[in-house]
Nucleic acid binder design. Sequence first.
RNA 1: UGGGUUAUGGUGUAACGGCAGCACUACAGAUUUUGAUUCUGUCUGUCUAGGUUCGAAUCCUAGUAACCCAACCA
Length: 553
Amino acid sequence: MSEEKSLNFIEEIIEEDLKTGKYKSIITRFPPEPNGYLHIGHAKSICLNFGLGIKYGGKTNLRFDDTNPVTEETEYVESIKDDIRWLGFTWAEELYTSDYFGKLYQFAVDLVKKGLAYVDDSSAEEIAALKGTPTEPGKENEYRKRSIEENLTLFSEMKAGKYKDGEKVLRAKIDMKHTNMLMRDPIIYRIKHAHHHRTADEWCIYPMYDFAHGQSDSIEQITHSICTLEFVPHRELYDWLIENLEIYPSHQYEFARLNMTYTVMSKRKLLQLVNEGHVNGWDDPRMPTLSAFRRKGYTPGSIRTFCEKIGVAKRENFIDLGLLEFCLREELNQTALRVMAVLDPVKLIITNYEDEKTEELFSENGPDESMGKRKLLFGKELWIEREDFMEVPVKKWFRLAPGAMVRLKSAYIIKCDNFIKDADGNIKEVHCTYIPESKSGNDTSGITVKGTIHWVSATHAINAEVRLYDRLFTSENPLAEEGDFKDTINKHSLQVISNAYVEPSLQDADFEKRYQFIRKGYFYLDKDTTPGKLVFNRTVTLKDAWAKEIKKN
RNA sequence: UGGGUUAUGGUGUAACGGCAGCACUACAGAUUUUGAUUCUGUCUGUCUAGGUUCGAAUCCUAGUAACCCAACCA
């Protein structure tokens, strides 16, 4: 049975274009502005653009849209390239809009020569005042009547640096009464005496987005220029410029950007979180940036799967963060190495176990037998999870409690006989006896227990710092709340455990491996790890039916 | 009081005039040496009102709602 996957609307357009022979092959592009780090919303666009290139045997360029020197930096260029590579994509060519500044300038001159652009001496305020509003038409000003010759002179003087920032702009001459405000003589060049990250001080005039993007698409012969919905009104201008410049006709198509629960996606707001210290940098694992997801332990494959599952359409969407986590767990469940770690330790003493004895036990590394087994060290004193013992068990409890039996994962069945509290009434030690015949893999005891808990040997375990993350916002939609979105920041989004115990095999942890701390979640080594101190990030929790059960009561 | 875009379960996404499907979530159960995984099952939907048609999510008419547009940002 062949399962035919339905096409999204852009794929339909492409297949039609290919079928009718409009294009022999396609070229797409991913056009980030290097003024911030890439986030999960960009991943949707990256997967779409590069995915299309791959699917239809075309190619995809990486083009940095660097027309605003005051906000753009090389640091961002590098991080963006890293993130795209990490996601698993390869660009055909690495390009910069600034590569085309010469051509773009010439295009502007052509427009002036055709009488379709003019130099305007008005201030930003004056321009805004005559622009009108969405419901009222704009008005023309005196500069609009300048001769072609005068415009040519003035524009070349702008380029030559004769004027200060804001003193003059170049505008396309279209229609001040147009119902689309973007067509009311849009500014296409402005003066900025600023240092550009690539062209340095070569230019003091820079093209606006609308006069750079479509023209760059055209220069690269991009067949399908894909952007998000807020650019829909720009398409009319995009087409107007291409038509009047008589250059290669690229076409723009728009899809709905990704919105996700418990997440803000605008670069401006993310920058705010970083600058105001609400998080510790762009790659703080609580951020929705790709570098943060990477640091936290997300796999590129899970993000690609996610982008595949959410689809591409034109209607507003609000995706459940849980879907991303589902894709992640789906992959990690297959691939993560199983190990044991105790995050909130309580001492467990096996009273009938020989004092100095150390026993070697074996445990599977993962769900697939090919992943092999590893050695565990077992002894009289262990660390177990505080939450796995209950002095007065609730109903349906099948972990440790006075008189109760559980299996220690890959080891023995034990029975709880006693426990000791400290002066504050906290459980200090749990005393148990073990059943020698119940050894894992060789159990002749005939006893069955409902619960299995994880453990580490107190004499062999190594110490580690473990960082647990929760969602950054308490509100599902921080932007929809009254007041500032930062008011809904989750004050408990980071929990640092400095005294966790992990099994000795973790001494060899590295950035190639992802782990499941059995029963606790998936974890990944953090870059803050030093030779003397292991640091792990919790990538995501395991699904927890018991927590849900508790919550119900 | 302008222009543009979009409306399908709680959330996404299919259907191209012919049985409203899939995924996530939620819920119930089975299995389990991870209360994980796996497996089984259940609930929930075509924005509204008319019309065309043997037959409408799909076509027509009229509404309604949401989002975008008044940076020398992209």
